Computed example of a mutant assay.
Amino acid sequence: MIKTLAKQAMEAGGFYALDKPVGITSQRALTIAKRQLKIKKAGHSGTLDPLASGLLVVAVGSWSRLLAFVLGADKVYRATVRCGLRTDTLDITGAVEGFQAVPSALGAEAVQAGLASFLGTIDQLPPAYSALKVNGVRAYALARAGEEVTLAQRAVTVYAIDLLDLVRSGPFLDVVIRVHCSSGTYIRSLARDLGELLGTGATLHALRRESIGSVTLASAKDPASLVSDDRLPLSAVFPDAPSYAIEGELLTQARNGHALACPRALGDGKEVLVLAQGDEPEYQRLVGVYGVQGDKLVPLRVVPPEGAR
């Protein structure tokens, strides 16, 4: 028992920001991070393809159940779209389906106008080579097997899309953009659609995720160099959530997942971080994330105290 509790104490909950390198899967990056932190349980905030680099938000220990609050957050990406080239996967790793020289007359004005057409809420067709399921099977598995994949369009929101650079690369035109979008937006699909709009075809040449919600690459670490002190403060993940510290009977009720009376100061509909009173770091005192419902604080996700079985 002592050994078990000691081992669990090493697996302290928390959030970490990883900078995933190009060339490895998100799962591989998570495995490296788990080895560095000497923990067994962890999850991440959403897959990046091996082609892509950038931000993964990782939750470890019992905090993995809090990833639900990160998964739906807005994202910011820096992407390079190669106009003049079409591939089956909609990125540079795929098989070439066609190419054409991009006219020299195609410049910033036309590209800007094309990009502007994607602003707001749009219907987007996901890539056939995606992790979405068709009758219980991953779409990419069907596509790789040569089967025709039919996916439904779905609504996504592009809040901002900025043209950063235009670079001539032989017969191609590389369009470098920054995209602020809702969760579930496929930048590969955006690249495809921009190419069709410009009449050149296009594929995604490079992608880097710069932020998830309020967490940015500024706080991210290489998975192979991660240490426990790199844990993100709660304010980095929940910047707008007020905290409510409790003790005694209230703490016992909260640990057991009961609703609590809501102080008037918190009655604004926001998520609330409920903490145990004390001088320990916040990650040791977090009870859970609660929501305001009338005069009650209702548990959305509760995490057990460190060392609990």
Rank of each mutant, 00 (worst) to 15 (best):
E109V: 15
V96G: 08
L106I: 07
S62Q: 13
F118Y: 13
A155I: 09
D165T: 07
L142G: 05
E147A: 14
D162S: 14
D165N: 15
L106Y: 02
K75V: 02
A113V: 13
V156E: 04
A52K: 01
V58H: 00
I187D: 00
L163S: 03
G84T: 04
L163K: 04
Y129T: 05
G107D: 08
A105H: 11
G107E: 03
I92Y: 05
G84I: 03
R86S: 14
T157L: 04
A108V: 11
A155C: 13
A116Q: 14
L151E: 06
T93L: 12
R178L: 09
F99I: 10
A59E: 00
G136Q: 08
L51Y: 06
L67K: 01
V60K: 01
I122P: 04
Y159I: 10
G146L: 10
L67F: 03
V58I: 12
L115P: 00
L190D: 02
D165K: 10
G94C: 09
V58K: 00
A160H: 13
Y77A: 01
G54T: 07
R82N: 06
R168S: 10
D165M: 06
L151Y: 08
V149Q: 02
L67R: 01
R144W: 08
D88H: 12
R154W: 07
G120N: 11
G107V: 01
L125P: 02
L56C: 08
A116E: 14
W63A: 03
A73F: 01
G136W: 06
Y129L: 06
G146W: 09
I177P: 02
S117W: 06
V76N: 06
S62W: 00
G72C: 09
F69K: 02
L119Y: 11
K75T: 04
L142A: 07
V156I: 15
G61R: 01
L71E: 03
T80E: 13
V134H: 08
D123A: 14
D162A: 15
D88P: 03
K133Y: 09
A68N: 13
G170M: 08
R82I: 05
V134T: 09
V149F: 03
I187E: 01
V81I: 15
R168A: 13
R178N: 12
V96Y: 05
G61T: 04
L67E: 00
R168L: 08
R178A: 15
V175S: 01
V70L: 02
Y159P: 02
A108R: 15
E148I: 12
S182K: 09
L119R: 15
A160R: 15
A68Y: 09
R65K: 15
L132I: 14
P126I: 08
F99N: 12
V70F: 00
V156N: 03
A110E: 15
F69P: 00
L142Y: 06
